[in-house]
């Protein structure tokens, strides 16, 4: 099997995640889609690390995970706060910052 298949899978998952970010209105689901996109890149990193024969890609993937964890914590806290004040978790309802 060609190891590039992992990269194809990664691109596919990334696109699905991106479509989710654009289509879903529930902030939590949008956030999950972002996580999916991060995971897809991680997969690509790991696949490339294997192709290149060194561990740098895995290190980067590791850092991405750490950052993603921090991001999730903050993001969810923001969602909770927004929900508390607006009684809604829809990303469309927070649209005051406009013309």
């Amino acid at each position: 099997m060609n190891p590039m298949n992992y990269v194809y899978l990664s691109a596919l998952l990334f696109s699905i995640g991106a479509a989710g970010v654009l289509l879903r209105r529930n902030a939590i689901v949008v956030f999950m889609c972002v996580e999916l996109m991060l995971n897809a890149t991680n997969l690509a990193f790991v696949a490339f690390a294997r192709m290149q024969g060194n561990l740098d890609g895995q290190v980067i993937a590791f850092f991405v995970m750490v950052v993603a964890a921090a991001e999730v914590v903050i993001g969810l806290a923001i969602i909770v706060t927004i929900f508390r004040t607006r009684r809604s978790a829809s990303v469309d309802s927070a649209n005051l910052l406009k013309y």
Binding site: A49, Q58, A61, F62
Partner: peptide
Amino acid sequence: FYLAQDAPFLGVVQ
């Protein structure tokens, strides 16, 4: 997939 690609640490962390 991580495990399959010689990345057991990442697989477990995942």
